[in-house]
Amino acid sequence: MEVFKPLYLKALHWSRHRHAPALLTGLSFIEAIFFPVPPEMMLAPMSLAQPKRAMWFATLSLAGSMVGMFIGYALGYYAVEMAMPLVESLGYADQFESIKQQAAENGFWLLLIAGFTPIPFKIFTIASGAVGMPLLPFFFGALIGRGKRVYLVAGAIRLGGARAEAALHRYIEPIGWFALALLVAVVAWLFLRGQGA
């Protein structure tokens, strides 16, 4: 079953729009709150089309995500019960308590990891707000975690050109599932480590 490829193809279509930079910023913003399409799926073809602007596109994506993540945090902090239908609709209701616990205990590190997964970033921002994670580690964890991800994509496309974008297109499914499995393994390890402490 293909999950990531259809979303990637839709983002490819958006990347050709004349207002693509604004769309990328907006996509990054809403992805951090409720939208399921990772902005890197739009960032990659935009970086391929204009390699000299790749890092600028990554900066726009990061800026949109940073604003969106604070709204996600506020949802968790002030209205977690209102946010739960979203968490449930995305299929993370069972894991949400564990993610909240990890956000309370290892929030900074959890956000560093979350920045590299196809799991919607909003799950982590809502969970961080729900446990009242201090804003400074929340900000820097998300900034570094998400920043590494978008700049890595933009840099890879700028250096690798069409071959890198073609590889991303060809292997988006296994990459997405591998990143998902990696996140589950790390969260499980952090949880088990916390239980043994």
Rank of each mutant, 00 (worst) to 15 (best):
M41C: 15
T59H: 01
G26M: 02
G76Y: 12
T25E: 02
G76L: 06
M55E: 02
V67P: 02
P21R: 07
G26Y: 03
S28R: 07
V37A: 12
S28C: 08
V37I: 15
I71Q: 05
A74G: 14
L62W: 08
V80P: 01
P36D: 06
M82G: 06
S61V: 01
E40R: 11
S28F: 02
L23W: 10
A32E: 07
S15H: 15
Y73D: 10
T25S: 11
G76Q: 11
L62S: 13
A49T: 01
V80H: 04
G72I: 04
M82I: 02
P45S: 08
A32H: 14
L75N: 06
L23A: 14
F70A: 08
L60C: 09
P38M: 04
M69P: 01
M42C: 07
G72C: 15
Q50F: 00
F57L: 09
A79V: 01
E81Q: 07
P45Q: 09
V80G: 01
E81L: 00
P36L: 07
H17I: 02
L48T: 00
F35D: 09
T59K: 02
R53F: 00
A63D: 10
T59N: 00
L60G: 10
R18F: 12
Y77K: 05
A22D: 02
F70Q: 08
Y77V: 00
F29S: 03
M66D: 04
P21I: 03
L75W: 14
S15C: 12
S61I: 02
S65Y: 04
M55A: 05
P21D: 13
G68Q: 06
A49L: 00
W56N: 04
L62P: 10
A63M: 14
H17L: 09
A74K: 11
A44F: 05
P45M: 12
V37D: 09
R18P: 13
A63Y: 08
K52Q: 14
A74P: 06
F57D: 06
M66W: 09
P39F: 13
L43R: 14
Y77E: 06
L27M: 14
K52L: 01
L27V: 10
A22C: 04
E81C: 00
L62H: 11
L24A: 07
W56Y: 05
A58Q: 13
P51K: 12
R16V: 07
A32P: 12
A49Q: 07
E31N: 07
V80E: 07
Q50Y: 00
G68V: 01
L23I: 15
E40N: 15
M46D: 08
G26V: 02
I30K: 05
L62I: 07
S47R: 08
I33P: 03
